[in-house]
Write a protein that binds this DNA or RNA. Structure first.
Length: 216
DNA sequence: ACCCAGGGTCATA
DNA sequence: TATGACCATGGG
């Protein structure tokens, strides 16, 4: 037998407890982090955000107005700094054009997603990070760990598209944004342990008999 | 000296 | 539509 999406959540949650997640003091900081953390370790993102704070530039206007080289210098520790400079500027320009976060927060969830997806440098996962963690809307974030884990569990083949997976998770977890929040957090924060899957392992969540998944 | 991390875009076939 | 190159730092 195999485990359901909900059962995996219950195992993870029971073992690790509440995550109370996404580091960031404001919705804007969370959104900036979502762009900077693309394919990047969070420890590196922190340094870049600290640089922005130290320069008192953690706001859309400052970022849009800042010279490209200066912003790139602040973002350097987060990697891909030239690309992220362009993406962050594009995002902040969009946010200003929209009239700020308050205005954006009035959109229906679907509309919000579509608008974010139209911004250069904001793909499905980044958009959903923002929608879920900055705006507290019920969307399930699909990331590389999620694909790997549930593919290995045998619930998916692994080549499904982003939307297909998102719908699959959301339809089984019934629109609970707090649960989506915790679930993705558990996967990201403990994904490394989860993904050390090997035959008959006894320290991962994915194999029958391991400490999290077993029915004991 | 590798390996990879909380992806996305762009060019090519 | 579907692969592949590319982006770049820092910690293990």
């Amino acid at each position: 037998m195999s485990y359901t999406i909900r059962q995996v959540y219950q195992r993870l949650r029971k073992h690790h407890g509440p995550q109370d997640w996404w580091p960031g003091d404001s919705p804007f900081e969370i959104m900036v982090g979502a762009i900077l953390t693309q394919n990047t370790a969070w420890s590196n993102v922190e340094k870049a955000i600290d640089n922005l704070k130290a320069a008192e530039c953690l706001d859309a206007t400052s970022i849009v107005d800042m010279p490209q080289e200066e912003l790139a210098g602040l973002l350097r520790p987060s990697g891909y700094f030239n690309i992220k400079t362009r993406r962050l500027k594009a995002f902040c320009q969009w946010l200003l054009d929209e009239g700020g976060e308050k205005k954006v927060s009035r959109y229906d969830t679907d509309v919000m997603r579509q608008k974010l997806l139209s911004v250069h440098g904001v793909g499905p996962e980044t958009a959903d990070d923002m929608v879920l963690y900055a705006f507290d809307r019920p969307v399930f974030v699909i990331d590389a760990y999620t694909r790997r884990i549930f593919s290995r569990l045998g619930l998916f083949s692994g080549d499904e598209g982003y939307e297909e997976l998102r719908q699959a998770f959301e339809s089984r977890l019934k629109g609970d944004s707090d649960l989506y929040n915790e679930y993705h957090a558990l996967i990201v924060l403990h994904g490394k342990d989860i993904c050390k899957v090997r035959p008959n392992c006894d320290d991962c969540v994915l194999t029958t008999g391991c400490q999290y998944i077993s029915n004991r």
